[in-house]
Nucleic acid binder design. Sequence first.
DNA 1: CCAAAAGTGTTGGTCGTACACCCATGC
DNA 2: GCATGGGTGTACGACCAACACTTTTGG
Lengths: 247, 247
Amino acid sequence: MHDTLGKEQIYVAVDLLILTEHAARLKLLLSRRPQEPFSGRWALPGRFVGMDESAETSAQLLLMEMLGTQKLYMEQLYTFTDIHRDPRGRVISIAYLVVVPWKEMDPLIREHAEGYQLCDVETGRELLRITDLDGREMQEADFAFDHERIVRTGIQRIQGKLNYTPIGFAFLNDPEGFSLSEVQEIHEAILGYALDPSNFRRQMLKQYEESGTLSQTEKTEIRRRGRPAALYQWKDRRQTQWQTENS
Amino acid sequence: MHDTLGKEQIYVAVDLLILTEHAARLKLLLSRRPQEPFSGRWALPGRFVGMDESAETSAQLLLMEMLGTQKLYMEQLYTFTDIHRDPRGRVISIAYLVVVPWKEMDPLIREHAEGYQLCDVETGRELLRITDLDGREMQEADFAFDHERIVRTGIQRIQGKLNYTPIGFAFLNDPEGFSLSEVQEIHEAILGYALDPSNFRRQMLKQYEESGTLSQTEKTEIRRRGRPAALYQWKDRRQTQWQTENS
DNA sequence: CCAAAAGTGTTGGTCGTACACCCATGC
DNA sequence: GCATGGGTGTACGACCAACACTTTTGG
């Protein structure tokens, strides 16, 4: 459909920065482009916006295609409009940041998103290293289009948001409950440095327990070693799925 | 040029939320649309993005047309893509937030931006009231397109940014120097409530004096009543004009 | 001298950080 | 008992809001 683009119009696309976390590692969904332009380079999942879709809808449809679900945290990240970002023609991209709990991602990626890899993201202050499943590090030139810039923008965004929003909880599955150290592991993976467990716990409880969104359950975690952790629950009154531009 | 739009493509426009401050009041540049659609309703300045322009460039060109300058603080606000936001056809809008010092705005608006009004914005916790020069309050239905939503989004954004960025200083002219109470007046106008002068001063100095971006000059203000204020200077190392998507 | 605005000092509470210490489990 | 991870207590410093107080000007 879009192998060749007309020269007289601007095309609008959406690109998804899909993040998840597993084993203390932040992960990012990328694929090698199978065709030109940028054949063989790493790219975010993307899609042209149809005439009868808003960008949000388009992004949700792509998410549905890839992962078979749309009940995920999603927020608009930034709109990239450089003239030469796509050699085929004039294409602007509205990028969205999506957070997927690992337990949902793991089965979903096998079924639907063939050709995609969950690459490792190693962050830190002044550091961003992305490596594929074979441990090979990617440079900016290994990315298609301006996707490296989109990734950097998104990682920075989510790092900033950890401090004053509960976005970290979007990495977890509600129904079963979770321990606070799991949440801490997620925060550490995103920030790239360790946090003090006791202070982290207090911070979370103070920020979110009073409003009732975070509450302890009766259950405790089953572990091999150490004291079992109390399990918590996240109750999202309002805005369960994705955010508006406010916040 | 764009009175009628084709039905088979998506058009890309930029809209500008141009803010300034005077006499303890936040002000916003709006005009009544002279033609359909939404004839007579209030609208932000906007422009279709040309094939050879990035959205940033397009916004800068519009700013140049209107105010004759492009050395202003500008940041991308949000991209609005609802299907029916423009009855002429499919138009998405990338909104930009622009901050203009009053001393530049005052002469510029007379020369260039005919037909525009600097409307008053009254803010507060859970409050947003916009009134035209005759003091008439605008409702959501008085705005064209989704521009009321854009305005709300922008006001919320700048309110949030006051806390952790020096965006308030963008409302002031560098060369002459300014007193900290002028800065405070700007913050109060944006937030919609009063701040403690002594605490405000300490906050500003702690945040920005150490890095050298805010420094006291030798001069003092000339006032009618009261003790003259020390004048300060803003030295913007890096990013004088407009920001990237980072931060 | 008085009013007005600039600017400093003080105080009490809150919050973040570091770290010592206790608790509950598997082995 | 001991190692391991969960969870609490505490002490210190930074920070913030409130407000009393001093300083410098115009009238």
